[in-house]
Design a protein around this nucleic acid. Structure first.
Length: 443
DNA sequence: TCTGGGGTCCTAGGACCC
DNA sequence: TCTGGGGTCCTAGGACCC
């Protein structure tokens, strides 16, 4: 027997060219045309429509390098609008979640559903219905892959997008296939395209004669562990139909939280860096409170531009330990600035700064400290907690950046100091700002 | 000649994912 | 001129413990 069929069933649903599809929902002029969405500062291509792919635009391509020929060919480039994508994502995910009580939201555009025990249903029809509903209710086209392990569901999802046998329907169900057919599809599937096989391992596997997903499924898993590691061994098992990965329904709380940005232009002065670091700390700390955690150490780092060899290079970082765990924007902001002062060297032009919060723990577990630094001890701290609750509530209800600390700079975001990122072609916040709602004009 | 055995914790680095 | 941002897991090796 070539393949084991695990008792489980997984479906992987993801949005096609998700960011581009989000833009198209509210701007029909974009349909049928080459469209790309760019990373922050309009740096790299992070999403491409089929038409853009057909023009040969590569994922991750620096936009300035392809801009001229791309625009000449009628291509459109948009700055990324994460507010819009996050909102459409949550709508899409809630519809997908109607098709199983076991949903894992894997990324902004991908979701696993566990369909174990659903085999008395017609899974293909279920998938057709799901796809149609998401299309009608949110306007995002999705692809669906079904397999008896998550790795096979991922692989099926890819076949649903690329393979002529499935592309029309956008659905590929590997659980319904006989072994011979499964072997045929896996043999036509490059090992490097398997989930969990990156470029390094793909190259090493190829040197050892393992070129397709089928090849990888035939290798002795123990051998894989010996020559690679346990992660790739699991992948090999999963390709055979032995489920090693299970559904992670409740997202685990993060072990670290990072907030960093490249600047709109190179920055050399400490005052601007202080504003940037304060802003990133505030953002990271807000995320920290959202997941109910506190941190005991944070790292501040700076980077000079990596691609410009003319610039003198300097990549300092420093970790600042706190005396007691905290989730307070003011406390952490102060700690971050003290770290910045320690690593800052004049004479360099920096391209990026960032803050990482480490050693996270639940804020509900009260750690007693021998000599609390807050004057007045617990009472002073609880008033700080109330301040943070208010800060978060105001920013939640009145919009992000309604309330901020003076160290972040006294201008509103729109004033755009020199370190803010550039977003030259940003679409409106169609679904999250009253003043930017789409309008329908009567003729 | 011959130098125990079993364990934890921490860090750095390497690989992967979207 | 112009090259994103945010994560995870695993392994090896060193320090240290009894």
């Amino acid at each position: 027997m070539l393949f084991t069929k695990s008792e489980k069933t997984f479906a992987l649903i993801d949005g096609n060219a998700f960011y581009v599809s989000c833009e198209r929902v509210f701007n029909p002029k974009l349909s049928g045309r080459p469209v790309v969405v760019l990373s922050n500062n309009d740096g790299c291509v992070v999403a491409r429509s089929d038409e853009a792919k057909a023009l040969g635009v590569a994922m991750g391509a620096p936009y300035f390098k392809i801009r001229k020929p791309y625009e000449k060919a009628g291509g459109i480039a948009l700055s990324s609008n994460y507010t819009l994508y996050a909102d459409l994502s949550s709508r899409m995910m809630s519809i997908i979640g109607q098709y199983s009580d076991r949903q894992e939201i894997y990324s902004i555009d991908e979701s696993f559903l566990e369909w174990t025990g659903f085999r008395h249903f017609d899974l293909d029809r279920l998938a057709v219905d799901l796809r149609q509903r998401v299309g009608q209710w949110v306007g995002i086209p999705v692809g669906i892959g079904i397999g008896c392990t998550k790795t096979l569901a991922k692989l099926a999802n890819r076949l649903a997008k690329k393979h002529p046998d499935f592309r029309r329907a956008g659905i590929c169900n590997l659980t319904a296939l006989p072994d011979a057919a499964l072997e045929r599809y896996l043999s036509g599937f490059e090992a490097g395209d398997v989930w969990g096989v990156g470029p390094r391992w793909a190259a090493k596997l190829a040197r050892q004669g393992i070129r397709t997903a089928f090849d990888l499924s035939r290798v002795e898993p123990a051998w894989v562990r010996q020559h690679y590691n346990v992660v790739l061994e699991r992948t090999a098992w999963e390709l055979r139909g032995v489920a090693c990965l299970s559904q992670e329904e409740a997202p685990p709380t993060k072990q670290q939280i990072v907030s960093s940005r490249s600047f709109g232009r190179l920055v050399g002065d400490l005052a601007s860096l202080r504003q940037a670091v304060s802003t990133y700390t505030a953002r990271a700390t807000e995320k920290l409170r959202q997941q109910g955690s506190q941190t005991q150490a944070l790292t501040v780092f700076l980077h000079t531009p990596p691609f410009n060899t003319q610039e003198p290079q300097y990549h300092p970082s420093v970790t600042v330990r706190l005396q007691e765990p905290s989730s307070d924007t003011l406390t952490l902001g102060k700690a971050a600035l003290s770290g910045l002062e320690r690593i800052y060297q004049p004479g360099y032009r920096y391209q990026k700064a960032g803050v990482m919060l480490l050693e996270l723990s639940s804020a509900r577990v009260e750690q007693q400290v021998l000599f609390p630094q807050t004057p007045g001890g617990t009472r002073a701290r609880s008033s700080r907690e109330r301040l943070m609750e208010t800060l978060d509530r105001v920013n939640r209800e009145m919009g992000r950046d309604s309330l901020w600390t003076a160290s972040q700079g006294i201008h509103r975001q729109e004033a755009s100091p020199n370190w803010r990122m550039q977003r030259g072609n940003l679409s409106p916040a169609y679904t999250t700002r009253w003043d930017q709602l789409p309008q329908v004009k009567a003729i």
